[in-house]
């Protein structure tokens, strides 16, 4: 086939590149590459080149046509599709066009050392003419094998679906993870204001509840108790007594409204109460107590703080201590 083609006169050349590409098709068939024709990367090119070289090893070929061979693949396909059906599938138009051009100068090259059909064969000529006459509608993508096209479309669709599913799954996972996560509004809404009020001033809606403790109340209580002991010298026994009394009074007056408190904390207080006198858990009795204590001057307040108890404790719970 090839030999014949080459042997044809320049007249044939006018018929177009198709012929040239036809020859390439033959080549390609021989190569029998099942690879996807779309991807021709450097590696593939090399491989093809090598194969072609091997194939044509008998001939002392120059490299140019060989290269063309490789790039001409698409053309071959096109040719085939021409023959097969008129429904054109297009892949990458640009590539095809390029290839066409390339293959045009491809046929200029006449490979030496090939036997020619001196007279030519009419049947072939007719056949080719017929083929070349068939008009190919210029689609965007250029002619592609229909089967292949379907495959590509299918693959693309599949990929799309896959990606979509993946994305959705990710989104869902993220949503599940973010469940309950709420971004606060930029402004203080009424409820937040109410909560801040509760924290600062205590709860006025339920004045009898534990909410008696709030920042303001605590500060005031601290102020009262600490102010009361200012003028007194705790080292004198008289003053110490007075301090104790004052503290208790101040404390209860401030937190007195929490006397509704529950029984459970009372239990805690009761359990700590007896520790007043002898408790080994009591800080001053520990070995390192004096060494680590930075507030030595307050040593005499120890028993008292027991009675007045801590802030978190209810008022009435400690009242039974004295």
């Amino acid at each position: 086939m090839q030999t014949q083609e080459v042997g044809k006169s320049p007249k044939k050349r006018k018929v177009g590149h198709k012929k040239g590409s036809k020859t390439k098709k033959k080549l390609k068939m021989l190569q029998g590459n099942g690879e996807e024709k779309v991807r021709i990367n450097q590696k593939m090119k090399k491989l093809f080149r090598k194969r072609v070289r091997d194939y044509n090893s008998d001939d002392d070929d120059d490299s140019a046509p060989v290269i063309e061979d490789v790039s001409g693949q698409l053309n071959d396909k096109k040719e085939v599709s021409d023959g097969h059906s008129s429904d054109e599938e297009r892949e990458n138009h640009g590539d095809v066009g390029e290839e066409n051009e390339v293959s045009e100068d491809d046929e200029i090259v006449i490979q030496p050392g090939i036997t020619k059909f001196t007279e030519g064969c009419k049947a072939f000529r007719m056949a080719f003419k017929k083929i070349t006459k068939t008009s190919v509608s210029d689609d965007v993508l250029g002619p592609v094998l229909s089967a292949h096209k379907k495959l590509v479309v299918e693959k693309l669709a599949e990929e799309d679906v896959k990606r979509k599913v993946k994305g959705e799954a990710k989104k869902e996972k993220h949503l599940v993870g973010e469940k309950g996560h709420a971004k606060p509004a930029n402004f203080l809404d009424l409820y937040e204001k109410f909560l801040i009020g509760v924290a600062t001033k205590g709860d006025f809606q339920f004045p009898m509840c534990i909410a008696g403790l709030s920042v303001v109340k605590l500060f005031n209580a601290v102020n009262k108790s600490q102010n009361a002991q200012k003028g007194l010298n705790p080292s004198r026994s008289n003053d110490a007594k007075a301090i104790r009394k004052q503290r208790k009074e101040a404390f209860f007056s401030e937190l007195g409204n929490t006397s509704q408190f529950t029984r459970a904390p009372a239990k805690i207080a009761a359990s700590t109460g007896p520790a007043d006198g002898e408790g080994p858990a009591w800080a001053p009795l520990r070995d390192n107590y004096m060494l680590t204590n930075s507030m030595l001057k307050d040593w005499d307040k120890m028993p008292d703080t027991r009675v007045a108890d801590d802030f978190g404790m209810p008022a009435d719970s400690s009242s039974d201590d004295d």
Binding site: V198, A199, G202, D203, Q205, F206, M208, C209, I210, A211, L218, A221, V222, S225, Q226, Q229, R247, F251, Q260, T262, A264, P265, I268, M295, D298, K301, D304, T305, A308, D309, D310, F311, G312, M313
Partner: peptide, 28 residues
């Protein structure tokens, strides 16, 4: 705040949270 409804489990909650932070001594 608002835990004083007298229900037992709420009492337990208050105790729990009161004891989760160190107590404050008002005098010092």
């Amino acid at each position: 705040s608002g835990f004083g409804t007298g229900e037992q489990h709420l009492k337990l909650t208050t105790i729990m949270f009161q004891n989760i932070f160190p107590a404050i001594d008002i005098n010092t």
